[in-house]
Design a protein around this nucleic acid. Sequence first.
DNA 1: GAGTTGATTTAGGCGGGCCTAATAATCAGA
DNA 2: TCTGATTATTAGGCCCGCCTAAATCAACTC
Lengths: 220, 220
Amino acid sequence: MHTQAVEDYLKAIFDLARVDEVVTTSAIAERLGVTSASVTGMAKKLAGMNLVTHEPYRGVALTQAGQRIALEVIRHHRLIETYLHEALGVPWDRVHAEAEKIEHVLSEDLEARMDAALGHPTVDPHGSPIPTLDLEIAETDATPLTGLRAGQRGTVAEVSDHDADLLRYVGDLGLYPRTPIVVVAVAPFDGPITVRVGAAERTVGRKAAQYIFMTDIEES
Amino acid sequence: MHTQAVEDYLKAIFDLARVDEVVTTSAIAERLGVTSASVTGMAKKLAGMNLVTHEPYRGVALTQAGQRIALEVIRHHRLIETYLHEALGVPWDRVHAEAEKIEHVLSEDLEARMDAALGHPTVDPHGSPIPTLDLEIAETDATPLTGLRAGQRGTVAEVSDHDADLLRYVGDLGLYPRTPIVVVAVAPFDGPITVRVGAAERTVGRKAAQYIFMTDIEES
DNA sequence: GAGTTGATTTAGGCGGGCCTAATAATCAGA
DNA sequence: TCTGATTATTAGGCCCGCCTAAATCAACTC
């Protein structure tokens, strides 16, 4: 078993690596709310454990072993989120924070029981894919809502869970995963996007739209 | 919020205090699997936080504030045990170990949700009382099975959860809380106790019988 | 190609919680 | 009441994960 700090670092590096392939110390530092100096120290330690490769001044990357642990933690995290949402009715803007704490103390047995109770779900309440038991994770090919033009329709696939306020806002708009919407208008100069959700029309700010990912996009 | 170590110490002191009123450093040390020297250090720290009174060489006792925290942790612990057992089917000999880990990261919100989902239970799977939301705990006046004579009947009230093997053994015998039994025979010289459970007769070793607590005792 | 700037790493420290070894207090028995 | 055995406490250290301040490297500008 690894310490909570080790698990948190690996998860953060994994997440950051899907955006920028080279993961800088400062990015990790910001993500975890620690100083870069602390990250350097931990990077050395993780490199010593062969969970990470670290080229000084050049950034870090997960090794095979490191990625494996990251995926285990992410599986824990997303299963817990899903369980809390489905079984205990925790609203989707709060499941992330709860899961952050529980993911580090979840036994394999409990994970399996939650997984079974949920019927082996494949996505969490934010639409993020849950790694399978053998740690395969579905690639997500969704495009941000900001990439759609007026007249296109699509389905909400995933909403980033990095900010609880964002989730509350997006939830208030009714834009949960699996919701079909139509883009009515896109205001110029990075203005807001108007969409039809069911019978209602809703206006989504640009900033929020960046974090809403769409699939099944087609002209209408 | 307190550290996990602080919570563990307070819980251990609370538990030990119901058996021996004066709680010695070595008793705590044994319970927590640390050295007495470590306990002395922590005792000083807890005394500084006004959670405990510490008379050097004389033992420690919880203050009002310390007891309050202990009861909060115990409520968490027992609710989690109950939830895992009822909702996820975790066998009763394993719920303790799982709860030990989760109790330190459980939010009040989640606690309330679990409590509601269970219908506000009053005892955990081992028959131990769950402190109420305002931290009242029912006094248990049960007597150990070793205190019964042949011919008496009674109901299993509580089984100590300190040892998973014991629980597995007692479970195999069918002696779960709320089970009515009749004492058929008590072998002399601290020998085993034979009881009737439903239609079956079972023999319980003396050691195990010490940890099985009975209520509603009457002659039959 | 030298300087400036910003990111990164090193150096040194701190608190938490644990340890071992040495010392001190208590208790029980002669 | 003295003494030896038992139990507690002190003293000194270690590891983890974090910090600040100082030094170093990379990259870009001129």
